[in-house]
Amino acid sequence: MEKMLAEKPVNVNEEGYLLEFAQWDKDIANAIAVEEKVELRDDHWKAIEWIQSEFKKDSPLSIRGIKNSGALNIKEFYELFPGGPLKKASKIAGIPKPKSCI
């Protein structure tokens, strides 16, 4: 379905995750962050960039990956995106949420 974010039309799924990463930009990230009640600061952007680089490599997102990345520690990650940090950060980063096969 189409949705307006930062005054731009984007394709999202039922849960508001972007369907096309190519449509993502920083304004859109900010607009999603507002919906998720997260105010994006430098540390958030560091996390978002790291998540996007993993996504481009087809690497599955996991807490282990974050632990080993050196980009940020896990406690910080939870503080940055309270309650379900992986799915929230993914949503703001414009990539699909980590999922199973059903």
Binding site: N13, E14, E15, S62, I63, G84, L86, K87, K97, P98, K99, S100, C101, I102
Partner: peptide, 12 residues
């Protein structure tokens, strides 16, 4: 589960 639910895809 570490995921957002036992089921994670909308149709399922």
């Amino acid at each position: 589960t570490p995921l957002s639910g036992a089921f994670t895809k909308p149709k399922a």
